[in-house]
Write a protein that binds this DNA or RNA. Structure first.
Lengths: 243, 243
DNA sequence: GTCTATACGGTGATAGAC
DNA sequence: GTCTATCACCGTATAGAC
């Protein structure tokens, strides 16, 4: 593999990533990808055989880099629930603020082609214990198991349903990214104001989730001290949650 | 306008609605629409001139029927905050369970064509007071104003930010619809189980929102009695919130 | 007014010769 | 690794039958 060849293939992938996220699979044009990669249509076919295969390569890479680590946080048995929540929300916002078009793109493509993309996703990050027998056993439900246990022990609010909590948590995180247009126009935010909104939203989502989960006195303790010890093996820094 | 004409035009619109929601604008084919309408491509052009114009007609109708009434709930000054939340969440779920592909479709198209669709949306439901001077003045922020006031009066939790509350509320509602594939596969739900999940989720989202908003003792009062008087001028039934 | 037949210019993905 | 060719199909247009 020559240096030239690597460059061309890499340039095509980067251009394709940009174009697919911007226009979606159906709206993307191979000619546009070629133009933005500084090459021609025939090269795309030479390296990737088809639009679908080019898409799959990109999608698998993206899923591995952007989504799998987020899922891993909620399945990490070494973090307790509060740590999982704080780490997940912060990492989610950091990731998506760097790739704001990715969440909507991913959901749209998942809905157009559920089975193929689920298979791709499972290859990267098995969701169920049975999906890939050779893979080191990952519990898909550590977060939910821990929440359920905390509820049973009386640590958390007794009306908390762990699956609904997880869905609410994810929904609160994702919505400002998939509906940026709606939110920004409703509140008349400039682009800068929207960035500030997202920056503040990190801590708001954590508060909201803790309000739902924690008994009021426990929430108040956390709110006053802002000290929940948090391991962040996933990011760069190792830190405590402080404000 | 003959009866025959109405039928053809109506059939085209219904088919187009289905196809656009399923495949998106870019993925939709005029030929497919024609086939599903039981007519031919030329008729689409005859009645609607172009793919874009056909799309706009459908989109405006859908927005008016499905989205505008939801926005109106949060802007109705005759409902207090708790009523707005309960009414909004229930109506949201009822609407989207009947049209499950609509939320993702709408967001995707908004992001592909923000300005044109924002203009269409404003025609139906002015968001800001300045958008349409002749229109009866609608405050875009009744919900948020009421929440802010309640916080100032000490009725609600003092750390509640009304805009983040509104975004969280909407996000919790919308997420299971835009990410159905992900949620359903993560929890291994059958289609029937997913329906049950959504049915239960209505009340869960209300609880989550109230937990975020209300002081613990107020929340507990509501939880125990499940009696917040609620006017539902928007639905069919007039009722109190009971379980 | 309503619908059919035919076709045009443009572009998509892909095959195969070199 | 590059270029030419091809072929299906896209959205759109128009002429004209009923």
């Amino acid at each position: 593999m020559t240096k030239q060849e690597m460059n061309t293939e890499q340039k095509i992938k980067e251009a394709a990533r940009r174009v697919f996220r911007r226009d979606g699979f159906a709206g993307a044009r191979m000619q546009t990808v070629a133009d933005e990669a500084g090459t021609n249509k025939m090269m795309l076919h030479y390296y990737f055989r088809s639009k679908h295969q080019l898409f799959d390569v990109i999608f698998e890479e993206d899923y591995k880099e952007l989504i799998a680590p987020l899922g891993a946080i909620l399945r990490n048995p070494e973090l307790h629930v509060e740590e999982q929540i704080v780490t997940f929300v912060r990492r989610y916002h950091e990731t998506m603020m760097a790739h704001p078009k990715f969440p909507l793109f991913m959901m749209h493509e998942f809905s157009k082609n559920p089975q193929r993309l689920l298979d791709l996703a499972k290859k990267v990050m098995p969701v169920s214990k049975d999906d890939e027998p050779d893979h080191p056993k990952l519990s898909a439900t550590t977060f939910m198991d821990q929440v359920d246990q905390g509820v049973r022990e009386g640590k958390y609010n007794e009306d908390v349903d762990s699956s609904h909590l997880a869905v609410s948590l994810t929904g609160m995180c994702i919505y400002p990214f998939v509906s940026r247009i709606g939110v920004q126009s409703a509140y008349q935010f400039t682009d800068e104001q929207y960035q500030e909104f997202l920056e503040k939203r990190k801590e708001e989502v954590i508060s909201h989730t803790f309000r739902i989960l924690m008994k009021p006195e426990y929430y108040q303790l956390w709110k006053d001290s802002k000290q929940v010890p948090v391991k962040t093996d996933f990011g760069k820094q190792k830190e405590s949650v402080s404000k």
